[in-house]
Each structure stands twice: as structure tokens, then as C-alpha cells.
Write a protein that binds this DNA or RNA. Structure first.
Lengths: 338, 338
DNA sequence: TTTATTTATGCAATCGATTGCATAAATAAA
DNA sequence: TTTATTTATGCAATCGATTGCATAAATAAA
């Protein structure tokens, strides 16, 4: 390890006290401009770097944000993260990212680690099977801003950033119904999670408004991993009442399902009309192109980052704004046969 | 801020010294088992959490790794990150991720910030336009392990983790040639980066071995952002000598190019055979499915994480292993007309 | 029983930066 | 010229955890 330059070295060099050096570096008003310049010059010359641990230990701030997401390797999440990183970086915050891999146990572990790392704020998108939320109480007790995004849960004083999933589910289903679908299958992820449960609600509401019956058999819950597309198609083939509409709550999984359906000689959209979710790049690139719901991941990330930083700085009492809902949009392409 | 529990509180509670508490918590051999148990019990009861800044300040370790990537919102990168996160997390390291957004200036800034955060190691995939590498010298001077992955540069003592891009470029081009292509256009990202430059080398070598002439006009350099696909197709249309093969150094950009080509009534693979790069999920889902080079992002991440941690711990003198090359694989699908 | 060794614990300094309070020096007001 | 005010700087404690060294207590060896 090379010798580290500290404020004491700078102080000695300039024959002033470390206190003055510290103030000078932090642009404290009580320090004269001449002294500040001398400090800056010598700091630059000796390649001084502030020791963050010492600074953090003193002022109890880390300028770092924790982020817990279900998976890093998903297009949607990567756009969210890109957004978070961008605002954080601009505001001088680092982000420590961890993935729960959809497991509550790992989420708990990550929450602990990040707490111990002393993050100034935490952003969470919940794992598939998270059922209790005790692992977040240390944050609440310590008054560390905690924001849920996308996969959220209502905890006192924790804002959520979402889209209106009920409405989005409604619009997608309504669109299929208006295109003439009478028997629409919905393929969903874990219904423990708001995102899926809410879209299902919207689906039901749309059926009702279009005078279609809701049937339990038309809800297919899956982890939506690519290899499960076959199961979906097997299920479709074996259904008593053939479906003519398919609402898949993820574009990439929809793409796999469509591929599998085509393999079984289904015509899309002639036999089955399909709507996905996310506006993943894949949705425009497959054949037929996929109708979907635009899902502003990047903006969600930007907003989440801004919110948590504002809350840390006490700029905004976001606590009152309990939930922020971003605009989504139905995008109609070939797969729903317009 | 809630009152924080420190080792002094635990010490007072148990009527022992903070030193003993510290040793007890760290499982120091000199502390009796009985005392250790008592400490653990009270720590648990009072919900004690170690203050990382204080610990770090003392032992000059942060158990955190810095990661700088060009973009977070790319499928390839997200798989790399998933790999890095997985091993780091298991080994007890946090990862601080930042993106350069392909700009050298931002990369420099990020490198500084991460250095000041005191990361124990750094993983870097270079920005498009990075031309000098001075911003990494503080790491080298301070003996902090620095590993480049994918988009690498040879710096003394910095291992690189890559695939054999020359060979991969060769195989892709050779495959096109063997499929009968006589005039192959290569679409590449910035040739400043090894990944693209090396693949171009392989392309040239394959042409030579197949008795095809290399022509400067058959190299098209672009940022490979989706909106540039039109430029590529315009270029193709205007070429004097029509091409019959297309080697695009990114699957997702290849997908956009194919879409654009289809729009202009080109038949793939009948008129133009295409090979991409990455084995992005998109490559199997588009029509025609895309031949490509499998690119082990996740494994690259795992390996990079392991390497840097081993180096931090001094387990392995990876310095000697100057470059690790992962296995790639040509995947032949419909777009190259087999 | 006395001395040597082992075991378990505590003292006090250290890691660097921050900051409330005190104070010296410079300037303004009386 | 003396006193009051402003400006610039330093003293010393603090943020918690770690650790080399010293030492007391317990045990083993002589």
C-alpha cells in the first residue's frame, strides 16, 4: 500500500492546523480565500484523497444508496438501474446494487448488509416470494429513506413508485376484447406481487365491462422463465374451450410463448391475439410484432433516485406523497391484429 | 436517527472492556467461549450492528468492489453484472456499480469516486472513446487489484478477461464464406476497442483463407444504436457491389438491421446471410432466427468477480495469469441459411 | 509450596476527518 | 488611543472499531 496522504500531511506542509485544512477543503466560509487556495494547491500537488471512512465516521453520511432488485439480468431492471445510476451519480451518490434472485432469504441478507454498510437510502423492488417485511424495519427505525419501486409493498412512510397496473391490465384486456376476443388467457407471474395481482384485477374488470365471464381456468401463474413457455402452450392446447386471446405479463416471455405457438402451427394474430407487457425491445423485433404496454423503466429509475435523494436531503417531504404513479401506454402492433 | 448501539454499550452492559467485545465479535481465539457467547447474546438482544466506517477506518478494508461499465441497460452487461454480483455477494463483498455512458470523462470521474470510496478492487469494461488510461494509475500505485473485462486494455499487472475475439470473428466470417458469401459487410462498433478491432482482424483473416479480397468499403463503423440501422441499410442499398453476407458485431443491432432489410424487401438468408454476436435472447426469437457467437457474459462476470477477490485476498497471483480467455461458440441458425 | 506457562482480559493508542468553542490578529468604532 | 467587533485559525474532543502490548488469574511443572 502506498503511503496515504492525510490532512495532517497537508497541515504540516503548510504549517497550519488540520482543522483549517479540513475546513479549507470543505469550503468553509470562515477560511480565507488565500488559505483555501494554498490548501487546494498542496492537496493537488500531493495527490491528496479524502478518506471516506473517516469522513463518514465523523458525519454519519455515506453518500451511498442501496438498491435491491430481483434480478440484474432483465432488460426492464437494467433500464431502471441505468436511471437510478444516472441521477445518483450526478448528485454525488454511489449505488450499491444487489440482487435477491427472487428469494426472500437473499433479500433479507442483502437488506442487512446494506444497512450495515450505512447506506443513506434504500431502493427496493421485491423478490417474488417475499411475504414479510421485517427486514426493512431497521431502516424505518433509523429513519433511513426507503422507497419501493415497481414491485412494491405498503409500509408506513415508505413511498412507492409504480405504474397504474390495474389500469394497464384493463387497457390491454379491453383492447383484446374490442378486437373480438371472447376467451382470453392471462399468463402471470407470482400473484403475491402487486404488479401481477393488479394487472389481473384490471383484466377482470375489463372482462366484466365487455360482458365476458371470468374463469379461474383462464389464469395461468408461472415464473415466466423461458423454458416454461412450453408448459403454457401445452396448457393452451389442452384447454376445453380454445382461447382466442392471450395476455402475457412480460414481453420476453410472450415472445417465447409466441415462438412456441407458431411451432404448433397457431397463427398469430389470426387464431390467437396476443398482448405483452413492458415494451421490451424484443417486442418490436419479433414477428409478428408484439402489442404491449409501455413501461417506463428508465424514468422509474430516475424518479426513484431523485425521490430518495430528495428525501435524504430533506428537500421534500415525500412521505406525504405516498405513491407516485407513472404514465403507461398501450402500444398496438401486429400481434393483436389491428 | 435512532440511538446507535456500539461496542461500548455492549461492554458496559457486560462489564467488560470494548476490546474484549470487539475480539469476541470477531471470533478472536484469545477470547473464551463463554465470553463470546455472552457477547453474541447481548449483541443480538440490543440489535447491535457493527459500524463499517469505524471498522474500515481501522483495518483499511471496505469489502466493496467498484464496477465501471459502459452501460447498464444492455443485455450482455446485465448478465455480466449478475455474475459479478453473485460471487461478490457470496464472498461478502458489496459492489458499487457505475456507468460511463460510453464517455471517457465520466469514466474518469467514476474511477475517482470509486477510488475515494476505498474499494478493495475494481472491475472495468472500457467506454467507447477511452484513449488514455491515466485515471487507473492511482489503483496501480495503491496496489488495488484492477481487472479489465470484455473491453480491455493492457496495463501492467492488470489481468484481462475476454473471449478470443479474433477467433470468433474468424469463425463467423468463415462460416459465411463457407455458406457461399462472396462479399461480406462487417458492421462494427468503435475500432478503438479491442472487442471490435479483434473481430475485424478475424474477419480479415477468414477472408484471406477463403480467397476473398478485403475491401475497406466493406467495413462500416457505427455506435450500433437502434436508430442507426437505417443508415446501415441505406449504405447497403447504395453499395456498388451488392453484398451477400452481413456480419454484425451485436445481436440486437443485427436484429434492427434485419428488420430494416426486410422492410426493403431483402430476403434473409436468401439475398443476404447474416451472423450476429452475443447470443442475446433476441437472436432466437426473431424471424429468421439469428446465427451468432455465444458470448458467456454471466461466466465472464463470475470469473471477474472471483479473480478480483482472489487477488485481494492474495490467494492467487493472478498477475502472472495475464489474460483469461473464455470459450465462445458459433451458433448456426436460420439467418445464415443452413 | 514456589516458579513457569497458559489463558483471558484490559489499557491506551490508532485509523482520518470533523466541529464546537476559544483565542489571536486585524479592523472598525468610540 | 482605547474598546468593540470582525475575521481567521487552532485546540482538543469526537465518531466506533481494532490491536500491540501489558497484566491478572488460572493452571501446570518443578
Amino acid at each position: 500500500m502506498a503511503k496515504k496522504v492525510t490532512i495532517y500531511d497537508l497541515a504540516k506542509e503548510l504549517n497550519i492546523s488540520p482543522a483549517t485544512v479540513s475546513r479549507g477543503l470543505n469550503n468553509h466560509p470562515a477560511i480565507s480565500d488565500i488559505t483555501k487556495k494554498r490548501i487546494a494547491a498542496i492537496a493537488n500537488k500531493l495527490d491528496y484523497r479524502s478518506n471516506k471512512f473517516a469522513a463518514n465516521l465523523s458525519n454519519q453520511k455515506t453518500y451511498s444508496l442501496g438498491v435491491i432488485v430481483p434480478r440484474l439480468d432483465s432488460y426492464f431492471m437494467s433500464t431502471v438501474l441505468a436511471g437510478i445510476e444516472e441521477v445518483s451519480n450526478k448528485a454525488g451518490y454511489s449505488i450499491i446494487i444487489s440482487q435477491s434472485l427472487e428469494s426472500m432469504d437473499k433479500e433479507i441478507l442483502n437488506a442487512k448488509t446494506l444497512f450495515n454498510s450505512g447506506v443513506d437510502g434504500l431502493l427496493v423492488s421485491l423478490a417474488r416470494d417475499t411475504q414479510n417485511y421485517k427486514h426493512f424495519t431497521p431502516y424505518i427505525k433509523a429513519n433511513i429513506p426507503l422507497i419501493f419501486l415497481d414491485r412494491v409493498h405498503n409500509l408506513t412512510n415508505c413511498p412507492t413508485i409504480v405504474i397504474d397496473n390495474v389500469q394497464a391490465g384493463y387497457e390491454a384486456t379491453d383492447h383484446l376484447a374490442k378486437q373480438g376476443c371472447k376467451n382470453i388467457l392471462i399468463i402471470t407471474g407470482s400473484l403475491k406481487r402487486n404488479v401481477y395481482a393488479d394487472r389481473l384485477l384490471g383484466y377482470k374488470k375489463a372482462l366484466e365491462n365487455n360482458n365476458l365471464n371470468f374463469e379461474e381456468v383462464n389464469v395461468f401463474e408461472t415464473t415466466m422463465e423461458s423454458q416454461n413457455a412450453k408448459d403454457v402452450v401445452d396448457y393452451i392446447i389442452k384447454m376445453n374451450k380454445p382461447i382466442d386471446g392471450l395476455f402475457v405479463l412480460s414481453d420476453s416471455f410472450a415472445a417465447y410463448c409466441i415462438q412456441e405457438l407458431k411451432r404448433k402451427n397457431y397463427l398469430i394474430p389470426e387464431n390467437i391475439k396476443v398482448v405483452g407487457f413492458n415494451n421490451d425491445p424484443i417486442s418490436k423485433l419479433i414477428t409478428p410484432s408484439l402489442s404491449t404496454i409501455e413501461y417506463p423503466g428508465y424514468n422509474m429509475g430516475l424518479l426513484a433516485g431523485e425521490s430518495v435523494i430528495n428525501q435524504i436531503k430533506g428537500n421534500i417531504q415525500l412521505r406525504e406523497t405516498h405513491s407516485i404513479s407513472l404514465r403507461h401506454k398501450l402500444i398496438i402492433r401486429e400481434s393483436s391484429g389491428n
